[in-house]
Design a protein around this nucleic acid. Structure first.
Lengths: 207, 207
DNA sequence: TTGCTTGTTCTCATAATGTTCTCATTATAG
DNA sequence: CTATAATGAGAACATTATGAGAACAAGCAA
């Protein structure tokens, strides 16, 4: 519970409130309202929460937009920034223990969270040979164009949506949508019938 | 890019509306009308929906083609989405356009970033039937015990590390490490020779 | 065109939130 | 012990945010 900030000018509870506000913002991206602050530190009075918040204002840790809902602003940077990186420990199944390779590298998932991205849950086995199983979640970048070989979310006849590998015919008149499953056949459509909704940029699965 | 030092320029419901509009466009490819916005956030008044939409216009998030039906255009996406969550659009590949999953409209990846987790890059095809391909990244929770059926990172003879499905023999004297690849055979070791380093909790792939 | 739908502008109410108090209780220093 | 600071509850009030719906204008389709 010890943090790097040593703040002797705050009481324990004021410290607790500041801590809560920082964590709240990290999680929800918006500051808490007084009711939430109160609950966050285990009391029931908005008035008391307000008193703590004012103390933090006077101590110079935060500002408030007086009257506005969720009007708290942090003045110093938030130590609880959400993490989107993980230590990457090296390749597995090689001859050495994992521990022998200290975390010198990390993997950054922030590109998964871009503004035009969304996640879709996959139903069915049509992409099983590409390692995309029924129930997996795929991450799609919202785009209207794709390159040959991309895996795309395609809308057919403004009606049916599928995840397939994309290929254009030589003159661009037809579009071939190729399942990655040896038991299924590629489908060919006139280009006008197919609209790209997005391109696969990632895939993930929770166990 | 989102920092912590700001007061939200949108109220809770205004954010909800922005979120709804983005999701609506992703699903139906056209912007919603006010009636749909109203229903989308659980109110019945077109007038109120209009007020929210106007607030978003003034905040610079959207534009409207004044008077036109479905005249909303997105300008910038909302910065209020935490970097560990993605909008989740529902299941793909069924016969219909993507539908939202009721009750669950985003996926949260924050559990991937726990302190005891690390990422490992997979080498080889031994888990290919489980949809884990060569080059994939798996997310491991650092643990020393596992249950039967878990996929684990196991260290054999303090020397060799592999990713396999874990199974204990009835008396616990032996441990079977099962590859998910029909061309490979399970391996059996005396329990002392195998040490669990972690358990698979997630898997991801970048394209 | 006609008739219906949709967007826009209002007013009126109500709920939710921030703010300021008073009063009581607990912890702590001296 | 007493004095003081810190804490908690909650009432009362002001302001902000929200919701319903009427009335009218503008778009849209048959």
């Amino acid at each position: 519970m010890r943090t790097s900030n040593f703040t002797p000018d705050l009481t324990d509870n004021q410290r607790k409130v500041l801590d809560f506000i920082q964590r709240f913002i990290a999680i929800y991206t918006v500051p808490p309202k007084l009711q939430e602050v109160a609950e966050g530190i285990g009391i029931s009075s908005r008035g008391v929460a307000h008193r703590y918040v004012q103390a933090l204002v006077e101590a110079g840790y935060i500002e408030t937009d007086s009257g506005k809902h969720r009007g708290i602003r942090l003045l110093k940077s938030n130590p609880y920034r959400p993490e989107s990186r993980l230590p990457l420990l090296g390749e597995i199944a090689a001859g050495k223990p994992i521990e022998a390779i200290p975390g010198q590298d990390e993997i950054d998932l922030s590109e998964f969270f871009g503004h035009n991205n969304f996640a879709v849950q996959v139903k069915g086995d049509s992409m099983i040979d590409a390692g995309i199983l029924d129930g997996d979640t795929v991450i799609i970048e919202f785009r209207e164009t794709a390159d040959d070989g991309d895996i795309v979310v395609a809308l057919i006849d403004e009606n049916e949506t599928t995840l397939k590998r994309f290929k254009r015919s030589q003159r661009g008149k037809y579009i071939k949508l190729i399942p990655e499953n040896s038991e299924m056949e590629p489908m060919v459509y006139e280009a006008e019938r197919v609209r790209i909704q997005g391109v696969l940029i990632g895939q993930l699965r929770k166990y």
